[in-house]
């Protein structure tokens, strides 16, 4: 408990950085993921194949490697990005790959009859996606997307490997200076759990709201 008091400023900063990493990467990842999904279901073979390759690469390699490539590898090519933006870039690309699969599952889960009803009334493709398919796909995808958000929140601890002072790094710091690793690590573990509990509650509220039309 005294650790909490002594290191409160550090912990708060770490908490803010962790939440920022998670939320910003999730939002950007959703946008990129949606684009990847649209490419994956498009009529163009080139787009479909590129999107599939993207998903395969970013799902098939360790997140830690991706983060380190952005922070330690890219400078060799003349691209230098500060630690936090580096981490956000890697988290965004990584979660976009997973989220695009969640979105795709959502779209495939929409009944074929919905597309046919829209087609039979001459609704254009994009409008069908936007007005008819996406709203239903989002509802189907929400549980999986929520899990992805929670997983991402925990994955942000890997940013500590590229010198980002987020919660995990703060815990390490407290441990090194006080040798009370156990308490420090348990404390930040609890904080992660707290954040994710809030996320899960948020997800439940959202799911309940979206279910209203269907009940």
């Amino acid at each position: 408990m005294d650790l909490l008091v002594d290191f409160l400023p550090d912990l708060l900063t770490g908490l803010c950085v962790t939440i920022t990493l998670g939320v910003v990467s999730f939002v950007l990842g959703s946008v990129v993921g949606a684009l990847v999904t649209v490419a994956r279901i498009s009529g163009s073979r080139v787009l479909r194949a590129s999107a599939a390759a993207y998903v395969s690469v970013f799902r098939g390699t360790p997140l830690l490697i991706q983060i380190m490539i952005v922070y330690f590898g890219l400078p060799q090519l003349g691209v230098e990005i500060p630690p936090i933006p580096s981490a956000i870039v890697a988290f965004t690309l990584f979660s976009a790959a997973y989220l695009s699969e969640n979105f795709r599952a959502g779209i495939l889960g929409v009944d074929k009859g919905q597309w046919e009803a829209a087609a039979s009334m001459a609704m254009p493709y994009w409008r069908t996606l936007r007005r008819i398919v996406f709203p239903q796909a989002i509802r189907i995808a929400t549980p999986a997307v929520g899990s992805r958000f929670v997983a991402l929140m925990k994955d942000t601890s890997l940013a500590s490997a590229v010198t980002v002072v987020e919660l995990t790094r703060v815990a390490e710091g407290i441990g090194t200076s006080t040798f009370r690793y156990m308490e420090a690590l348990l404390l930040v573990g609890l904080l992660y759990w707290g954040i994710n509990t809030l996320l899960q509650v948020g997800q439940q509220v959202l799911e309940r709201r979206m279910r209203r039309a269907y009940a």
Partner: peptide
């Protein structure tokens, strides 16, 4: 110029009856 009524209705479940009927006029 045509319209179709399906065996399985294929109403848009996220829209009210009114919104279902308005969708074509608004969108198309």
């Amino acid at each position: 110029r045509t319209a179709m009524v399906f065996q399985q209705f294929n109403l848009f479940p996220h829209m009210t009856a009114l919104q279902n009927v308005m969708e074509g006029p608004l969108s198309v």
